[in-house]
Computed example of a mutant assay.
Amino acid sequence: MSWRATAALARERTGELVVEEIELRDPRPGELLVRIAGVGFCHSDLMFRRTGSPVPLPVVLGHEGAGVVEAVGPGVSAIAPGDHVVLSFDSCGGCESCGRAMPAYCARFRELNAVGTPPDGSAAARDSAGGAVGTRWFGQSSFASYAVATARNAVRVDRDLPLELLGPLGCGLLTGAGTVLNHLRVPVGSSVAVVGTGAVGMAAVMAAAAAGAERIVAVDLHPGRLELAAELGATHCVLGDQLTPATGRELLGRVDHAVDTSGAPQAILAALAALGPGGRLALVGTGTGPVPIDPSTLAGRQVGFVVEGEAVPQTFIPELLALWREGSFPFERLVTTYALDDVARAEVDLTSGRTVKPVLVPAS
C-alpha cells in the first residue's frame, strides 16, 4: 500500500520550497506513518540550504512534526494507530551514547538525521514523475501532510493537548529548555544570560524562570522579541548591537550561566566575559565562524557545545508538557501558524525575525 501526501520539497539549494504531491511507501520494521497536524519551521531547515549540505535533492525538510499515527510497521508495539505523537530527532539505540541515555550524541546521529534518506539508501517516497524523494530528514521529513518516522523518534502524548502546536517541542524548544535544565542544571537563585531570543533562546528563558533563576538577562537584536522575553521571565533585556567582548560584563553583569544561540563569535566572547568564577557557557548556535578564545579567559570557567538539549525525548518532552500545564512553559506564545501551502511566507517571517516560531499546518 502507498500513501499520497502533500509536501514542501527542496528541489534546489536556493529559491523557495515547492509544494507538490508525493507518494509514501508503507512503514517498514521499526517505522510508523504519521498524519501531520502541525510542524515547526526551524533554522536547521534553513541551514541545510545555506551550507551546501550533501543531502541529495529533492528532499522534504521539516523535523518538528506532531500528528496522529495512521499505521505502524512490523515490530512496533509501544505505539499504535490512533496515538498522538511528537516527532523528535532519531538515534540508533545501540551505541555507547544511547546506552548512557545520551541519544543526542548518538554515534550515528549524522547518518540518521542529516542525510535525508533511510540508512539503507532506499527511497521512502516518489514524486509525480516517479523520481525518488528524500523523506528521512531528522528521521521524519515532516513538511508534509504525512511522514514516515521511526518508533525511536516518536513520543506519545495525551490526546487532550493542542496537537498542531506541539511539534516545536521535538527540537527547538527541547534544545533551549534542555540546555538550561539538563546540561547547565540551573539552580534556584542563580543568574543566567541568554544570547539570542528566537525559539531556542525563548525556551531557555522560560526554562530558567521555571527553574527559579533569580536574574535572567535576555539579549537580542529585535526589541519586540525582548519585550516578549520580559513577559516570559527575563528580568533584564539588552539590545544585541551593543554587545561586544569589551562590554559583556558591563551589559550582562556577572552571571553564573550563559546560553548562546547566535553562534556569533563576538557574542560568545561577550557571554564568556560575563561569567563569574565557576561559570558555565553553553553554545547552541552554529555557523558564523571560529571563535578565538584566549585560554586564560577559561580559568575557573567551562564552555561546551550542547546538542538537542542533551534530552531523552521520551522523558523530557512529557516534562515540558507538565510545565506547560502548570503555566510555567507557555510555548504557544511563540507560535504563529501558517498553511503548509504558505511555507514561503513562513520562511521569510522566520528569517526576518517577524515570527519566533512558524508552525505549518497541512490542510485537513
Rank of each mutant, 00 (worst) to 15 (best):
F89W: 10
D90M: 06
S91N: 13
C92T: 09
C92L: 11
C92G: 09
G94I: 14
C95L: 09
E96W: 14
R100P: 06
R100C: 09
R100M: 14
A101V: 12
M102T: 14
P103M: 06
P103W: 05
Y105T: 07
Y105Q: 12
Y105M: 07
C106E: 02
C106A: 04
R108Q: 15
R108D: 15
R110F: 12
L112I: 04
N113H: 05
G116V: 03
T117N: 05
P118K: 03
P118I: 06
P118Y: 01
P119Q: 03
P119T: 09
P119I: 12
P119D: 08
A123G: 08
A124G: 14
A125M: 05
A125C: 02
A125H: 02
A125Y: 01
R126P: 01
S128Q: 13
A129E: 14
A129S: 13
A129I: 00
A132C: 07
A132G: 06
A132V: 03
V133K: 10
G134L: 01
T135W: 00
T135Y: 00
R136Y: 06
R136L: 13
R136T: 14
F138M: 11
F138P: 00
F138A: 10
G139F: 01
G139I: 02
Q140D: 04
S142E: 01
F143A: 09
F143T: 11
F143R: 13
F143E: 03
